[in-house]
Nucleic acid binder design. Structure first.
Lengths: 206, 206
DNA sequence: CCGTAAGTTACTTATTCGTAGGTTACCAAG
DNA sequence: CTTGGTAACCTACGAATAAGTAACTTACGG
């Protein structure tokens, strides 16, 4: 049994609250979750949350920040080496792995944040991610002689592809993500025009 | 002056409330909007909303239903004829036109609905749209000898592409959607592999 | 055994859904 | 013109939920 609800040192309680909060925010969205529910699930009373994070927004901000950082890191890593096509494949797989292994985090990032909506725009956090990915893409496109202004279009398109397929996958959970990644990469790389009947990955010398 | 706030017959008031509600839901999301704000913006008191729609959910449901129907119709129309590539182009353009001309409706559909979240899943309304589009795609894919199980993947990928680019575009509003549609279609059809430097549409004999 | 970090109860304040019951504008017939 | 009658509308409330805070209590290590 998960330790008889003893007292925890500050850092551990923080970590626990972040975990619990992520799970609850994932399920009910920002506006839909109450601080009290988070506290209850953590077997703790409300003021504890306020003590550690200053309130609902504070906790939410920390969770979002961590999650964004994590995904961005994984994707950056995935596209840091290899042939262009390999990078696409690795990035797809990396993102889908994230979706599979961190469903709560993914759900939080998929939802609309109160921060961006109060700041005028309505976009989800993942649009921000697309922006950063776009910054990585831009130089490569320019190098290849493409219009730089199109970079954000492609970045958003690619992130959107994988994101939408990701949320679909979380409901079905059926074809293993490796196979899903194959299809996505094939579509992104070859296009509908040259879609192979049975897509294969192309990772040279792992 | 928008008519000195006189009394309106039921059907007109209904229409007005739908319009106002859509705008407010678009800005603050479902949970974030109060019935009172909708009433206030419609220069009317709260019980009127309850009288016409039975409550917040009722109004929301009507708005969502109409919007879904509208988009689905436009997309279906776009992909009802032409060569495969033309269909992709027309669909992209149709969707982006919707985004441009009905930003509020698009925002509502982009957000997470309380209906789907109470029904277990977290997906946005646009995932449902992808499902329907997938049903249209499936036969064509099967015809061409592809694995039917991959149809939803492609459908979601395509909808995701255009959706994400759409939300990005609503913030920037810069390249006219015709140009954006060109890029998207090129990516979807040719893939990153064969991306043209300056994409062009390919609508034969309109 | 005592000081402090960790935690709790109980409250105030504010918002919002939803409704009960009364009021007023409009229209058509006398 | 004036008088109903009805559709449209409003004020005012009840109940519930949630954010955030004040002031008190208790476990635990040195």
């Amino acid at each position: 049994m998960a330790s008889k609800s003893r007292r925890l040192p500050a850092s551990e309680r923080r970590a626990q609250l972040i975990e619990v909060g992520r799970s609850v925010f994932a399920k009910h969205g920002y506006e839909g979750t109450s601080v009290e529910e988070i506290a209850k699930r953590a077997k703790v009373s409300k003021p504890i949350v306020y003590e550690h994070f200053g309130g609902k927004e504070g906790l939410y901000a920390v969770i979002v920040d961590r999650e964004m950082d994590y995904v961005e890191r994984r994707i950056s890593e995935a596209i840091s080496s290899g042939s262009p096509r390999e990078r696409v494949e690795r990035a797809s797989l990396a993102f889908l792995s994230y979706v599979r292994d961190h469903p709560d985090g993914f759900a939080v990032l998929s939802q609309d944040s109160p921060l961006s909506s109060s700041r005028g725009t309505i976009s989800s956090l993942l649009n921000d991610l697309a922006e950063r990915v776009g910054d990585v893409f831009a130089p490569a496109l320019k190098e290849a002689g493409y219009d730089t202004k199109a970079a954000p279009i492609y970045a958003n398109a690619l992130i959107g592809m994988v994101t939408f397929v990701g949320t679909w996958w979380t409901e079905e959970r059926k074809p293993p993500i490796e196979e899903v990644a194959k299809h996505i990469s094939a579509l992104a790389w070859m296009g509908l025009r040259h879609l192979p009947k049975r897509p294969t990955l192309q990772r040279s010398a792992d």
